[in-house]
Write a protein that binds this DNA or RNA. Structure first.
Length: 427
RNA sequence: GCCGGGGUAGGGUAGCAUGGUUAUCCUAAAGGACUGUGGAUCCUUUGACUCGGGUUCAAAUCUCGGCCCUGGCCCCA
């Protein structure tokens, strides 16, 4: 009885009934098959990890935001809030034997103890892809290309990859003596506040009028990656080696994107900083073109993380796609896969014909979906069941037919039926 | 953690302002009318006021709190 606490669903989790799970299955397979074309191999990580591993990356404050608890042995553990630490651990464990580049992808389930919102649940699913062990514009591009192909293979075209390189703003703020971390937080908020508020916020960090103007001219640069490089160069007064490297990186990526024919899916957007995360260089976020929703997914380069887990210096680049946001967009665009659960055949048995019927069912199941009534029913009710579950054909096996070694095959859509020799099915 | 909107059978709803019989209608599900031919129709059955306290002769209705859903803030790995 609903109302008993025992069987109520917990907050922020979802059940997936067949008609909804079907679409998720299609998404999983599409994403996996897409990444496979790029040479990614699938891995799977545990759902629980030591709490220390998570705090090592994100700090002790994260404990309030995740499912952390003591197991029966008194160990501090948690349900994983993200995949990357586990991936890092897997890489470090086999550091020596893994051939670089490592290209891994993974479906994973994650948990965060936070207030549920649109597209944000306490338990959620992600698809991740990472390239580890190389630092190059090619690998940055490859991740982006894989992300774009994922969207395209899902039937989506109404999206845009906003690409940046954190080193550019990092150096910019550095050279003006502005604390980078705080500045990034403000840049990240720019789209949420008025321009006046933004100006005021950035001013409190010590930015003068000239600095503000220069910053906004950088942030407002918009266009394909290739065509924006000169604009960025112009907008930056001084360029140090970090900036030069970042510009080269964007320039090369821009060229690759053009060659690959993906320029219409990409644009420069230096306001993308990806929060305060562990990203070091190239970063990107994907939005629907109207930008009506929060970002669909994002990623970037994180060259220092593996080292943090006591590994050798291992550069890495990757992305994470949140399945809930994909689901929302696909439903909005009418691209959500609708299932057709109707079997190819529904076997109707009349009288004592189970010997022949089950032999036929097994034969047909070699290449078709076949169902039959699991409770004894009369003709009418069996036909009714065939109809209501959406069977394409009904095969009537009755004592009367079997005298002539035939069965009756009925097309459920047109209603036409014909007598077929039983041995036809075994040829 | 903060601010707002919600919660009536499995799904969708009426009723709530102004408290008052057995809580409305549609749909779905199960069974039957119907023993070798489905989608129709008819009949039957199952099935709800989110939970708890308060006010009252009387609460789905007024009130307080919890839980859950939902939009946003904070946060976003």
């Amino acid at each position: 009885m609903i109302g008993e606490t025992m069987i109520e669903k917990l907050r922020g989790v979802r059940d997936f009934y067949p008609e909804n799970q079907y679409g998720r299955r299609v998404i999983y397979e599409t994403l996996y098959n897409t990444l496979k074309r790029f040479g990614f191999k699938e891995v799977c990580t545990p759902s629980i990890e030591s709490l220390e591993m998570i705090t090592k990356k994100s700090g002790a404050g994260i404990v309030d935001e995740i499912y952390a608890f003591k197991d029966k042995g008194g160990r501090d553990i948690c349900l994983i809030p993200e995949l990357t630490p586990s991936i890092a651990r897997m890489v470090v464990q086999r550091q020596k034997e893994l051939r670089k580049p490592i290209k891994w992808c993974s479906f994973s389930r994650h948990w965060r103890y936070e207030r549920p919102q649109k597209g944000r649940q306490r338990e959620f699913y992600q698809f991740n892809a990472d390239i580890l062990g190389v630092r190059s514009s090619r690998s940055d591009f490859e991740i982006i290309a894989a992300g774009i192909e994922c969207m395209l293979f899902l039937g989506l075209s109404n999206f845009k990859f906003h690409i940046s390189n954190r080193k550019i703003l990092e150096s910019f703020f550095d050279s003006h003596g502005i604390p980078v971390k705080e500045a990034f937080t403000i840049v990240d908020k720019r789209s949420k506040v008025s321009e006046e508020e933004f100006k005021e916020m950035i001013r409190t960090l010590g930015a003068g009028e000239e600095c503000y103007l220069q910053l906004t001219s950088l942030l407002d640069i918009s266009g394909t990656v290739s065509e924006c490089i000169p604009q960025i160069s112009d907008a930056l007064k001084d360029t140090n080696t970090h900036v030069k490297e970042a510009l080269d990186n964007l320039k090369e990526m821009g060229a690759f994107i053009d060659h690959y024919g993906f320029s219409k899916h990409c644009m420069i957007d230096l306001s993308i900083v990806r929060g305060l995360a562990y990203y070091t260089d190239m970063v990107f976020e994907v939005f629907d073109k109207k930008k009506s929703m929060r970002s669909l997914f994002g990623g970037g380069r994180y060259d220092d993380l593996i080292e943090l887990f006591d590994g050798q210096k291992t550069p890495a680049v990757g992305f994470a796609i949140g399945i809930p946001m994909l689901e929302l967009l696909m439903k909005e665009e009418g691209k959500w896969p609708e299932p057709d659960f109707g079997p190819d055949y529904f076997i109707i048995m009349l009288g004592n014909v189970e010997k022949e019927a089950f032999a036929l069912i097994k034969k047909l199941r070699e290449s078709s979906t076949v169902e039959y009534a699991l409770t004894g029913k009369n003709m009418k009710n069996q036909m009714n069941e065939a109809n209501s579950i959406g069977a394409k054909n009904a095969i009537i096996i009755g004592e009367r037919d079997l005298e002539n070694k035939t069965v009756t095959v009925k097309d459920m859509k047109t209603g036409t039926q014909e007598s077929v020799q039983l041995n036809k099915f075994y040829e």
